[in-house]
């Protein structure tokens, strides 16, 4: 409960900070554009175009994030990921990493708890990587701004390499554990 209150206070100061930085950015933009008035049209038009493109999808993206946040609680992720192994575990790790919302630093304690519970390192690496860069709402924004080809190709490549990375790190850590045992 106390943590929750602290978290809320932190969020508030973050918003205040963001608004102040926004104010500074606006002032800088106004100063720059009054020194170079002939740039005004191009700058305003570009910003406006990007704003429109963003505002058309941002509410939808936020709704998706809110839904995942409420319907995919972290406890559920921990429950399912705790007892899976092998390539199936890795794929499950990716899926369960892609659904919940929140910054990466929320996922670290979850990963740590899962490791202590005996989850495979490969699944955990896949889970963390998916949490970081295969979020569904995030993919939507990528689709909007960079196009279907870019988004799909990067998604497929990321999944392939994350699977490989999970297995490689698991192997490396197992090897160094064996070496530590032999030496000690």
């Amino acid at each position: 409960m106390k943590d929750n209150v602290k978290g809320k206070a932190k969020q508030k100061t973050q918003i205040v900070k963001d608004v102040i930085i926004l104010g500074i950015t606006v002032v800088i933009a106004i100063i720059l554009l009054s020194i170079f008035p002939y740039k005004k049209e191009a700058v305003v038009r570009t910003s406006w175009d990007f704003f429109v493109e963003m505002i058309l999808i941002l509410p939808a993206v936020m709704v998706l994030m809110g839904l995942f946040n409420v319907f995919v609680p972290n406890e559920m992720v921990v429950k399912y990921l705790g007892k899976s192994a092998g390539i199936k575990g890795v794929l499950l790790g990716i899926l369960l990493g892609a659904l919940p919302t929140g910054p990466l630093y929320v996922a670290f304690p979850m990963a740590s708890a899962l490791l202590k519970k005996g989850a495979k390192i490969s699944s955990i690496i896949a889970f963390l990587s998916a949490w970081a860069c295969i979020k569904i709402p995030q993919e939507m924004v990528e689709l909007q701004f960079l196009g279907a080809k870019f988004m799909a190709l990067r998604l497929i490549l990321t999944i392939i390499f994350v699977v490989v990375m999970g297995l490689v790190i698991e192997l490396l850590i197992a090897q160094s554990n064996r070496k530590l045992k032999k030496d000690g």
């Binding site: 963001d18 926004l22 950015t25 740039k39 191009a42 570009t46 910003s47 406006w48 941002l58």
Partner: peptide, 18 residues
């Protein structure tokens, strides 16, 4: 997230313009 979005959108305008 709105303030951050607006910041980046203004920066994009300036970047492409200048």
């Amino acid at each position: 997230i709105l303030p951050t979005v607006l910041i980046i959108i203004i920066l994009i305008g300036l970047l492409l313009g200048f």
